[in-house]
Design a protein around this nucleic acid. Sequence first.
DNA 1: GTCAAACCTTTGACATTTCAAATATCGTCC
DNA 2: GGACGATATTTGAAATGTCAAAGGTTTGAC
Lengths: 171, 171
Amino acid sequence: MTESESATVDLEIIVQGAQEGKKLELRLWLRMLSTTKLISQEIRRRLRNEFGATLPQFDLMAQLYREREGLRLGELSKRTMVTNGNVTGLVERLEADGLVQRVTPDGDRRVTVAKLTAKGETSFSAMAAAHEGWLRDMMADVEPAIVSELWRDIGAVKSSVSNHLSGADFD
Amino acid sequence: MTESESATVDLEIIVQGAQEGKKLELRLWLRMLSTTKLISQEIRRRLRNEFGATLPQFDLMAQLYREREGLRLGELSKRTMVTNGNVTGLVERLEADGLVQRVTPDGDRRVTVAKLTAKGETSFSAMAAAHEGWLRDMMADVEPAIVSELWRDIGAVKSSVSNHLSGADFD
DNA sequence: GTCAAACCTTTGACATTTCAAATATCGTCC
DNA sequence: GGACGATATTTGAAATGTCAAAGGTTTGAC
């Protein structure tokens, strides 16, 4: 490649605002992944230290908290994006701790419905408030306008990904 | 709060384009988390179906691929954001599959260096190419300019989070 | 009514994950 | 040259995660 060719190419790339060149999607993914891991680990640590809870337990309880009537395990599995088998164990442990209660409805004995106990609601309520504060703190240096933009644009990413899944995952 | 005060507040919120009101950071976090899970699961499924590999193994091999001399397990742990104990098991299994090789350098017998084998390099190379394509496909509906913006802005989030960690995590 | 297909959850095998404690080695101070 | 603190990895317990297969239950077709 001659000097002038090289200069031209560089210019084009710069003009396109993509000096990173190819693999932009890959780079975005790696950054999303590492950022998500970072935040997850921080939340996990704080949940553990301040409440003796785990993140998956918190996630599961969050779903039950907004459905006071309780949810079937399959529905919980979908909402938490966790496999069925995993939900079984999670709910078992939460039940052992008295935070969740399992009920088999009269109509359909195949079904198990999980529901927060009073203790579970109290417990989750405290964790949720702290959790929200942690996130505000962690993102304190990001402009609110940027946070909104990110929320919107990541929604677009999620949409695109949903439309290009190989498996049979549709909603 | 009087009625007129309330009305004023509502108006401000609407004008700011934040009818979601508070908890913007929380909403961003939930969306980041679910999107990341969605993509992870898709990549996991494809790695499994097409290559018989797992995502953590792929991540680990990716680090070794760009450091052909190999990496100490502690360094691998930092780069993959995985705990030390976890790296031990991952490397063990990869070694059993003949993809990675462990060496203890002469100078310091505390250290273990993991390095891709020839088979590991070939294997990873194929997976990496496919992996990059999967991401491009999944994000195909997102404008390149948006992808760039996201990359930049998520960088800002990561920065902010890094500066507000409670633990002793600094780089 | 009965059988088969569909549905919901659990189970079992295995991999990944964290944390804390244990192990092993190195470097240094005296 | 021995003890101590710092480093580096491994181990062990418990939880989370996937997948596939097995268990009950219900429903619908006949």
